[in-house]
Computed example of a mutant assay.
Amino acid sequence: MVRSTTIFRVHDALPLAASVDDENTEKALTEYKQQSKLVFRRLNANSEPACSIESGQYTLHYLIVDKVIYMCICDANYPRKLAFSYLDELSKEFQTSYGDKIETVNRPYAFMGFDTFISKTTRLYRDSRTLQGSGTAPGPSSQLDQLNENLKDVTRIMTKNMEDLLWRGDSLDRMSHLSTSLRSESAKYRKAARNINLQALIRKWAPIGGLGLFFILFIWYRFF
């Protein structure tokens, strides 16, 4: 399930709004929230617009829309497609409500009134079984149908490890990810090219090799 939500501004990582978490949740997630702040201070215009960051029993998902970061901390087994659908819902409502004020505020949590919408949406996304259509929990079928229609294909969203990001110099930079993809594609191309060249050599020399083998066998049979 979705455990906690925070909304940041990209260029200075200023928190704009957040869920109001109970004492137990706040205590359990203190370390993860601190990690998220370290990560978001590194984000910029070249960062991946969406990413999942694994950290122990929880996964941090973020979505960047119009220079705003929407982040939620979920149980590690919570479906990614639901997490990003949840963040997408928040981004649309937040932009509608505060889009023209985002760049004007200087104090943290200037839009804490948005917690009402966060709480309502979190409750809607609480039971992943219901949202995926199992029918094991109550809820209006029209809402569930709409959510299922809005679920995104997240197979291309990058997944990172928190330890790699914080301590091993891994990057959330979009160009770094693109460079890695290009290197992978280049390696595949080189391998395919080698296979094509090998097949061409076989086609070129196989007849000559066959004739040579036939000649050797003929000589051996004829004289030995």
Rank of each mutant, 00 (worst) to 15 (best):
V2H: 01
R3D: 09
S4N: 11
T5F: 04
I7L: 03
F8M: 05
F8Q: 04
R9D: 06
R9L: 04
V10F: 01
A18G: 05
A18M: 08
S19K: 00
D21W: 00
D22I: 06
D22R: 08
E26F: 01
E26S: 12
K27C: 08
A28Q: 01
A28I: 06
L29T: 07
Y32H: 13
Y32T: 12
Q35K: 10
L38N: 08
F40D: 05
R41M: 08
R41V: 04
R42C: 09
R42D: 07
A45Q: 13
S47W: 08
E48D: 10
S52A: 15
I53Q: 04
G56D: 04
T59P: 01
H61Y: 15
Y62N: 03
I64D: 05
V65L: 08
V65S: 13
K67Q: 12
V68Q: 03
Y70C: 11
M71S: 13
C72W: 02
I73Q: 04
I73F: 01
C74I: 10
D75I: 02
N77Y: 08
Y78T: 01
K81P: 01
K81W: 03
A83I: 09
F84I: 08
F84C: 05
Y86E: 01
E89Q: 07
S91Y: 06
K92A: 07
Q95G: 08
Q95W: 05
D100K: 15
K101D: 13
I102D: 02
I102T: 06
V105R: 01
F111E: 00
F111H: 04
T116W: 06
T116E: 11
F117P: 03
T122D: 00
R123M: 12
Y125K: 00
Y125F: 13
R129L: 02
L131M: 13
Q132P: 02
Q132Y: 02
S134H: 02
S134F: 05
G135T: 02
T136Q: 11
G139K: 01
S141T: 12
Q146L: 14
L147P: 01
N148H: 13
N150A: 14
N150I: 00
L151H: 11
D153W: 05
T155D: 10
R156W: 12
D164E: 09
L166R: 01
D170S: 15
D170M: 10
L172P: 01
R174K: 11
R174P: 00
S176W: 09
S179H: 10
T180G: 11
L182V: 14
R183A: 06
S184C: 09
R190Q: 09
K191M: 08
A193S: 08
A193F: 04
R194T: 07
I196K: 15
I196C: 03
Q199G: 06
A200R: 06
K204M: 14
W205T: 07
G209R: 08
L211R: 10
L213S: 12
L213I: 13
F214S: 14
F215W: 10
F215G: 03
I216Y: 15
I219R: 14
Y221A: 09
R222H: 12
